[in-house]
Design a protein around this nucleic acid. Structure first.
Lengths: 237, 237
DNA sequence: CCAAAACCGGAAGAACAGCCTCCGGATCCG
DNA sequence: CGGATCCGGAGGCTGTTCTTCCGGTTTTGG
């Protein structure tokens, strides 16, 4: 295909055709460092949260701060590079769940899986919880929505899920589980599943009278939550 | 008893008997200011958390920073003065619950009441959640423990509460509720009760087979949580 | 009504913490 | 081997909150 002597200047990040193309391959050591940084960031942020000082991350990666800045000019750059695959995993779980034969089991399975991930990774949690304004997240939500609806519908169809259950409930349930999970983390990292059990028992339909519950939040109330509430404490810059 | 003319100097905060006694009554304006500060701190911290800048509090109280410092030399002083009664309220609720005729209703009532308080007051929440090392809190817990046990016992006695429920579960359940509550606060401040309902349904005993749940945390695991985990993010100073 | 005692305000300085750049020098690559 | 790349970490910068200091004001009690 076409190419060659595209330009003599340094900023050769465009093809002959004028279309942006993968920038020049990094030097071996540079690429290695990039990787180290990503790893370090992953570990450190998982336990200390999104606001972990960049200097600490650089140190953990065995690299100077400058190197980190060179590779990831802004904190956001780093975070995005870091969570692309985590988001993918989330979606994959959801898809798997939707594809499972038993709708009820699927619901529980997803709840467990997703909550587990978020409990183990504080940064992921903060991202999903407190920063829903970011484009990346907005985009994620967009993809999640239809799948989540299907998941709930299918669970409903089995007749095992209480009839007054709503899609919006899904997210909040998860929030509850993550909260306990995080709280108990220092002592046990599985004990939270006990509460998933409790909750699950409460989600079963028709054991006598389904207690009348307060109304669920509507979809756009949740929407509002994602725009208004997220703002207060977000990552700087 | 020996004493008298103990000192001519100003620090006459000891009684004739030599026993510490209520310090000199504040001047009228000073006392008023003290009150304003307390009020302002209560409101502001309820929505902004324990770390609210002291300057903001002073401003809200219509007072200079110096005045605040004069009255409450350290942030802790202020917080302690502030939460004495809130703690009292918590205990009072618990006592009321224990005194209620129906043990099951009592449990639910308390869960609702206590969670509601914590949801409405971010500072209270932070205090209870992230700073259990403080003496005041340790003391509170000491008083709570026996009452909580009674509460659970009584609920258990009605036969309505699932038999595998434990005292330690109480706290965690509350944590879950507070989490949802806080999350939904910007949009609705009662919608969280929906999840109390769900949860409650899951707590009901024996509707067929009580799903086997993971073991509850033991009392001293929880204890460990209160010493080890609390430390990381506490109030400065 | 007056003087002493008790208070007050807010400016100013100290202390921190994390961000980000700069540049001499090391490393890689062909 | 020589130029292009990349590195480190010290140092300056910024923004936030804490804490003190002192001239001036208000209260109190006789």
């Amino acid at each position: 295909m076409p190419a060659r002597h595209s330009t003599l200047h340094t900023q050769a990040n465009k093809d002959v055709i004028g279309v942006p193309v993968a920038v020049r391959r990094l030097r071996r050591d540079a690429e290695a460092n990039r990787q180290h940084i990503l790893e370090a960031a992953g570990t450190l942020m998982a336990e200390r949260g999104l606001a972990t000082p960049l200097e600490d991350i650089a140190a953990a990666a065995g690299v100077g701060v400058a190197t980190l800045y060179r590779r990831f000019p802004t904190r956001t750059t780093l975070i995005e590079a870091l969570f692309q695959d985590r988001f993918a995993a989330y979606l994959a779980d959801l898809e798997t769940a939707v594809g499972m034969p038993d709708g009820w089991e699927a619901l529980l399975w997803f709840l467990r899986k997703a909550s587990g991930r978020q409990i183990a990774d504080r940064a992921l949690n903060e991202l999903l919880d407190h920063d829903p304004g970011a484009d990346t997240i907005r985009h994620l939500i967009e993809q999640v929505k239809p799948l989540a609806m299907r998941l709930v519908e299918r669970a409903q169809a089995t007749g095992r899920l209480r009839p007054d259950f709503t899609v919006t409930d899904l997210g909040f349930l998860q929030k509850m589980l993550v909260a306990v999970g995080a709280a108990m983390l220092p002592v046990s990292d599985t004990a939270w599943e006990r509460y998933l059990t409790f909750l699950a028992d409460g989600l079963i339909a028709a054991r006598g009278e389904p207690s009348p519950a307060a109304a669920a939040l509507t979809v756009d109330q949740v929407q509002r939550l994602h725009t208004a509430a997220g703002a207060p404490e977000r990552t700087r810059r």
